[in-house]
């Protein structure tokens, strides 16, 4: 594999792909935020309306999508911290590759830990108790 050109963090390899993933997750989360403010606004309409709409969040498919949303938000947050480390910490740029692996490792561990509490109910519902 060709070496990344010198003098840039954002062209080629880890630096570029983590940037691509940052964009994609950012756009996804932004669109969700739009829907989420609308559904939460229903608390002003009536308790009944709100509860009916929130019930869709508790169905297995939407619950799985929520797990995906958490994955996107968590990646965006951890990679955002990596970006700040690169921009503000003097040794950040030198360790950006290691920081990428730290982000991915931490992301994976936290997602593994979140799987049980987030998905347990859906798992029981789909596969029986």
């Amino acid at each position: 594999m060709a070496k990344a050109p010198a003098g840039t963090l954002y062209r080629g390899r880890q630096g570029m792909w983590s940037w691509v993933a940052h964009r994609v997750t950012g756009v996804l989360v932004f669109f969700f935020l739009f829907a989420h403010v609308l559904d939460t606004a229903l608390v002003r309409v009536s308790p009944d309306t709100y509860d009916k709409v929130i019930a869709t969040y508790k169905t297995p498919i939407v619950n799985l999508l929520e797990f995906g949303l958490i994955a996107a938000v968590l990646y965006h947050a951890l990679n955002g911290l990596r970006i700040m480390a690169i921009d503000f910490w003097e040794k950040g740029p030198r360790y950006q590759r290691q920081l990428t692996y730290a982000v991915l490792t931490l992301w994976f561990l936290l997602m593994a830990g979140a799987a049980q509490p987030v998905l347990a109910h859906t798992f029981r519902q789909v596969f029986g108790s």
Partner: peptide
């Protein structure tokens, strides 16, 4: 946001316990 996700989706039953009340 991570605090919000933790409270709403992870702790104490997660989203299953969220309702108007």
């Amino acid at each position: 946001v991570l605090g919000h996700l933790l409270i709403m989706n992870v702790l104490d039953g997660g989203v299953q316990r969220v309702n108007w009340g």
